[in-house]
Design a binder for these strands. Sequence first.
DNA 1: ATTTAGCACTCTCGGCACGAGAGTGCTAAA
DNA 2: TTTAGCACTCTCGTGCCGAGAGTGCTAAAT
Lengths: 349, 349
Amino acid sequence: MMSDLTERQRLILALIVRDYTETAQPVGSARLVEHYKLDLSTATVRNEMVALTETGYLRQPHTSAGRVPTEEGYRYFVTHVVYQADLPDTARHTISHQFYQARQDVEQWMPLAASILAHQSKAASLVTAPHAERSRYKHLELISTQGRQVLMVLVMTGGEVSQQLLTLAEPVLQERLSAAAITLNTICTARTTEEIAALPVRSDALEKDILTLVLADMNRGEQRVSGEIYLDGLTNVLSEPEFLESGDARRAIHLFEERSLLQDLLARAMPNGVGGVQVLIGGEGKWEELKQCSVVLARYGIPGQATGMLGVFGPMRMAYSRTIPTVRFMADLLSSLVSETISGEENEQ
Amino acid sequence: MMSDLTERQRLILALIVRDYTETAQPVGSARLVEHYKLDLSTATVRNEMVALTETGYLRQPHTSAGRVPTEEGYRYFVTHVVYQADLPDTARHTISHQFYQARQDVEQWMPLAASILAHQSKAASLVTAPHAERSRYKHLELISTQGRQVLMVLVMTGGEVSQQLLTLAEPVLQERLSAAAITLNTICTARTTEEIAALPVRSDALEKDILTLVLADMNRGEQRVSGEIYLDGLTNVLSEPEFLESGDARRAIHLFEERSLLQDLLARAMPNGVGGVQVLIGGEGKWEELKQCSVVLARYGIPGQATGMLGVFGPMRMAYSRTIPTVRFMADLLSSLVSETISGEENEQ
DNA sequence: ATTTAGCACTCTCGGCACGAGAGTGCTAAA
DNA sequence: TTTAGCACTCTCGTGCCGAGAGTGCTAAAT
């Protein structure tokens, strides 16, 4: 693998990737030598470029232009050059600091993560809220609003909260609702959907109806592939030249706005548990819309219990050497946040 | 006002606006006559065009191009031609139907509203969740997650729910937390921030600390200008020619992604209570970024209690005759949803 | 008093040729 | 193995030209 290329070829490939990601212009031999102070002549560089072109890592847009990395070129760069790179300490500190300041505001965590990712990578970012495949009932609250309208707030272990508005057949007093909530809380707390479904049917009509809705809601939660999706930094990506012309790239943005498509992408791209950082370059042949784009994805959280995803989306020509370490670091950070928050099933009371 | 223009001039202006919004091409006299089967010669139309150009409602991009509406032209069109127009029944039914299907899922209301607006107007939409300037305490819930970590869920009248994660000095059992929550609920329910602040200080340390956080949270809520912001349909607007070239338009999109800027825009554009539909054409000289764009805004909700905003954003050349009635209808619809949900202060228990 | 036909005029836009410049690949020398 | 030298190729900006679109004006028609 590694010996596929000589040390010097790797250097030249890396420099071309770097220069191209910055300028979006094909890179010529002369520019490479003078701009990066190589102790080589342009001719030598050109010879190496020919080799790299034959191996399939570079290509020429046309006869007399400089070289541009191919998808394979980017992939080589990602796997052999920057994949193990660490995020500089200054960046780690900045990020940790921002999260420290927002540590109380659970609702801010996801948008904050998206915002940081977008700023650091200068591309578009997405973060999904942590989501459990099988979560347990934690607490139910019934709040009478007006007449027959009741707001039902359901909290799950793991901190997921869902609201639902229901209309009863006839008006019910708040006292009655509170009593029902207390009863249901007693019998349901810490139970899974299946366990609740297996309970004997309630004799009280109100409790029975509510329980049906609770079950429906829990089921709906388990059907979902991911938690809520947070996006940021779309404008970063809009000013990139790739997105100004070819409608291809614009269709990719559509993929990101349409939540259902995005869910599908995430599900297919990251089937397995928490692991390393996934880099999808040019859609990898599977996504027509992502032909000119790249996505850097990672899963965070605690595998059996609650996980979410985060990622960065940008032109194929993205700053991988910055983005990949950032995504990895943020995934670790969110993982630790989740494990601090989550109600473990062992020490549950 | 009305007599500013003759009937025929109004017709021609309206047709030019309509044609231009559809094609994005300057409209010539010949096209106008044959395409809309006018019983006039092109020369007559041209004479009227000269008049409209002199009044400032039309302009020519260059000598031998057709006419394009000016900002004043659009404004005349909006105020005198389409402002009172009603949304066709079929559209009303489609929209009502979609809301009917989602009536239980409170969390879906806002994104659904944004999605419908975006589809109907074929532009970008924004909706802010209803937000009360002065809301009242409704219910507090304290949930132990792990060791010293506690998830605090605070529900306000009007249905706003906020979550906060707090770390206590020492671990506390769930029983203790529930007891504290019940005590606080008893003394705080239905009270405003000021009223709660005026209560005698709690002797219990835990209750005192929690109450401080509750107050901080309520204050933070009251500081905010609006509820959460939901966006949709940005991609609709991206494919418009205006946004492909001039960076101006792209900067406008940035305005929409940066929540703080957007808050400012909303606050300055819609200072007063629920009223008619506001149409901002070309930024009205106040927003440099919106020079080529228009925004159609409306406030919904119940003035003294909880209000939110909704709007549509697109190129100045937008389909006002469709957008304005849609925004008005949606504002009414959301208003009725809010008044069904909200806990009135009178019939509060 | 309007409306309309006719016409000259102006400006944009696409196509085309052309030269400058960038960057290459190859060969032959170091 | 590296490098200097050079011929070659292709893009891109510029300027020119003609076609076409749309106008404004004038004079005739209603």
